[in-house]
Design a protein around this nucleic acid. Structure first.
Lengths: 187, 187
DNA sequence: ACGACCTTACCTACTAGTTGGTAGGCTATC
DNA sequence: GATAGCCTACCAACTAGTAGGTAAGGTCGT
């Protein structure tokens, strides 16, 4: 039914995560999807609307994934490693984390998108903090750092490791970097 | 003598680090500097040439700074913290790390710039590895991680912490995140 | 000392191409 | 017959880059 709309969102996400927000255009999209450039406006009146829809869907999807991870089996460390796979997997497919890309263009973005990028970071910090706290409580993690601060270290490292791996063309280096970090954090 | 040229490079760097590579144009520059757009072509025939000159200067400046840090006084940990100030200071001034920004636009960049971004990451990994190795040797650092891998964790964390701080508007959070990391790395 | 010449640094006015977005029309389906 | 989904054909604004000219300053041989 909404298959064109879905295809547009999907393709736009790929383009942004590969080339950055500014570097994707309605022209690119129309070529990839195979409909006229003007027809995109039928589904998304403005580029901003498309961007907002795209990131909202991304946030929702991620929230569901995090929820599933939380409720699934495994210790805290295993869950953190699995969390890292979201980033590692993306890089292997040639895709940067969406909100990492958007963050670096943030001051050229409309307010509606900016606030959603912020929400993304907050959502992830909250999830990490929660899982780390639970891991400590269950005795699966021992660390001197407060969970809130450990969460920030983990998210920062993953974002940065993605960027570094991307720049150096070493798509397999994200996961080991996270493992190294967790080995040290866990003491 | 070359004061216009210098001003152009300076302003271009600010624009890129604030808004991303794609989002800076000769128009922006001409407005900021106060010369006609076409006159910029007198100093830099193409945008790519400007970009290359800019990043080359940035690399050179950074190399000198790192050299000075290496040869200066202080223990390894202090040097790593001082290194972190390059990032923390930038964020406080509203500036992302140049090569972090460029990395996220990398697949939309000309080859000449791409390779320099790679060089940047390599240069920093090498410096960090060297300092960490020296710190271990002098007994100032104790860590289970191999210096090479510790270096990657540190660089990743700083890049990511810059991005996170930027997205959340928490310009003061880079330094504490590095401190937390080093406290854990140092065991 | 003087004109001839070149270079530097800038200008206005333009080009071809791209951008996001609009207007209006066609066609199939509900 | 309305609406969804697409089209062609356009628009104004912007992009990097070009053409050609001006004014100032230095360097040259005479």
């Amino acid at each position: 039914m909404n298959q064109t709309r879905t295809a547009l969102l999907q393709e736009a996400e790929l383009l942004i995560r590969k080339r950055g927000y500014a570097a994707f255009s309605y022209s690119d999209l129309s070529a990839k999807i195979g409909i006229a450039k003007a027809s995109i406006h039928h589904h998304f009146p403005t580029k901003e609307a498309l961007g907002v829809a795209l990131i909202d869907e991304y946030l929702e999807r991620f929230e569901a994934d995090l929820e599933a991870l939380s409720h699934g089996p495994g210790e805290a460390t295993a869950k953190l490693l699995a969390y890292g796979d979201f980033f590692a997997q993306g890089i292997k497919e040639g895709l940067l984390p969406l909100c990492g890309v958007l963050a670096s263009d943030v001051s050229a973005l409309p307010e509606s998108i900016k606030s959603r990028v912020e929400k993304f970071f907050q959502q992830h910090l909250d999830w990490l903090e929660k899982e780390i706290r639970a891991g400590v409580k269950r005795g699966e993690l021992r660390l001197d750092l407060k969970p809130k601060r450990a969460a920030r270290v983990v998210l920062s490292t993953l974002q940065g490791a993605s960027l570094t791996a991307w720049a150096l063309g070493e798509s397999a280096s994200v996961k080991p970097t996270l493992k190294d970090l967790l080995a040290q954090l866990g003491k």
